[in-house]
Amino acid sequence: MKSYVMGIDFGSTTAKTVILDLKGRVVSSSVAHMGAVSGDGVKASISNALEQAGITQEDVGRTVSTGYGRRMLDIADKNFTEITCHARGAVAMVPDARLVIDIGGQDSKVIAVDSNGLVAQFAMNDRCAAGTGKFLEVLARAMEIDLEKMGGVALEAKEELKISSMCATFAETEVISLLAEGNTKPNVLGAVHAAIASRTLGLVGRVGKKGPVVMTGGVAKNQAAVHYIEKALGMPLILPETPQIAGALGAALIALDDYRSEHKDELAEMEEDDRLEAQMEFDKSCVPGCKGVPELALTEQEKAAGPAKGKVRTIWEAVQNNL
């Protein structure tokens, strides 16, 4: 039996990989820009994660892929949609979450989840790139500003402007008109982010507004997007530390379930061995020279009184005298 499982999120603009051990602990994670067609980004993401974990693909027992390129990965044993995986990953990161807003490069989705991270309902953008990372990318280019900086500039907006087009290309025309009318870049960028928030609220409406809400996907790193979505929702967003890897984490958790269930007998044996080993370690503390006093060796009165000096030695001597 192998000791690790892997989740890969082969997205449209980035590739993410998460490696877990069989207890579900994150061993490593990696995000790489791509290269969607060549697959170079996903290869880099996988090798980085393996390197960080200090293992090779041979050590991985199960690999689950997700994202738009999920079917293109030969190393994946199974694939699941990004909706299923983001739900699972987001709830693993924020166990109380009941609604997941995921805004990625090419799509945005709102997912209602149960306490196990399973999808109850979902809605996806079905109108081109409206309300996605691509929408921000197109408009950043139109406004000649770095994508990473646009959120910060948008937060400086003083005036509320409106971009009403559903289409990224037409929105670009609106942005140019607003700038031509003499509006400031922060105000126009504020309107761009408000437009994303309004599309997101539309998706929330289709699924049903509920909380707590967690936001995942690359756009969760954009402070202005978060601010405007919170304002539109009238609710705070919980932001995981690494929102981009939620899908890959979900995929890895599904891989873990699958692998654990396939090897449940061996795992039960291993867990029993671990338990016995721990017990042995514990018991060893009764031998001379050990620093601690095992709780089990004390009566309730002794526990209440605190450890009695020399007690363990006395027991040990008594045992030896009787051998």
Binding site: Y68, F80, T81, E82, I83, T84, D107, L118, V119, F122, M124, N125, D126
Partner: peptide, 19 residues
Amino acid sequence: MAIEGLKTRVETFLEIVKR
């Protein structure tokens, strides 16, 4: 129609049904 996006929705739906 955008078949790829639809495919993601149908696959997710089938994952829900299976579960």
